[in-house]
Amino acid sequence: MQKTIRTLLVSTLFVSAAFCGAVNAQTTTNSAAKTAVATPENAVMLTVFLKHDQSRPLGELKAQLARQGFYKTFPPAGVEVVSWNIMMGIGQVVTLRLPASRLAEVNLALENTAWGTYRTEFYPTYDFKAIALAEQNKANQSLTTQ
Rank of each mutant, 00 (worst) to 15 (best):
L108T: 07
A114L: 06
N30K: 07
Q92G: 09
N137R: 15
P40D: 11
R67C: 03
N107F: 12
S83V: 06
A32F: 14
K129N: 02
F14T: 08
Q136S: 13
C20W: 15
A43T: 15
V44E: 02
L108R: 07
K129W: 00
V15P: 08
S142L: 14
A139P: 02
L58P: 00
L110E: 06
V23K: 09
R56T: 02
V37S: 07
P57K: 08
T28N: 13
F70C: 01
R56G: 00
V48G: 01
L98Y: 04
M87P: 03
E80T: 11
Q141F: 05
N85C: 07
A22I: 08
L108G: 04
I86H: 07
Q64T: 09
A25I: 08
V15Y: 12
V44P: 02
P40S: 14
V81G: 05
G89A: 03
T117W: 01
E105V: 13
Q68F: 01
G21A: 13
S11R: 08
T27K: 10
P75I: 06
Y123W: 13
A134N: 12
K51Y: 01
T35V: 13
I5W: 04
F128E: 09
E111R: 13
K138G: 07
A36I: 09
P76T: 08
P75F: 06
L8T: 12
N112R: 13
K129P: 00
V93W: 00
C20H: 10
P124I: 04
N24P: 00
T27N: 12
N112M: 09
A66R: 09
N112D: 12
I90G: 00
L143H: 12
V106N: 07
A32R: 15
T144L: 15
Y118P: 04
R97C: 02
Q64I: 06
N85F: 11
V106H: 07
R119S: 13
T120D: 07
E60F: 01
F14A: 06
Q136K: 13
A134L: 08
N140C: 06
Q136Y: 10
V23E: 10
Q64H: 10
A63H: 04
G59I: 06
T95N: 15
Q92L: 07
V93M: 04
G116E: 08
A18T: 10
L50N: 00
V106T: 05
A77D: 09
F122I: 06
T95I: 11
P99I: 04
D53M: 03
Q136V: 14
T113F: 03
E121K: 14
F70N: 03
M87Y: 10
T35M: 09
L96R: 05
F74W: 10
A77I: 01
F122Y: 14
E135A: 12
V10D: 01
D53V: 05
V106G: 04
A63T: 05
D127V: 10
I90K: 02
C20P: 02
T113K: 01
N140S: 10
Q54K: 00
P99T: 09
I90M: 01
Y123T: 14
Y126E: 14
N42M: 13
R97E: 05
F19I: 08
M45D: 10
T7G: 05
P40Q: 12
L58F: 07
H52R: 08
T39Y: 07
A33M: 08
A100H: 09
S101P: 03
G59V: 04
Y126G: 12
A18L: 11
Y118F: 15
Q54G: 00
G21R: 06
N112T: 02
D127W: 11
Q54R: 00
Q141G: 10
K62V: 02
V48H: 00
G69K: 02
K138S: 13
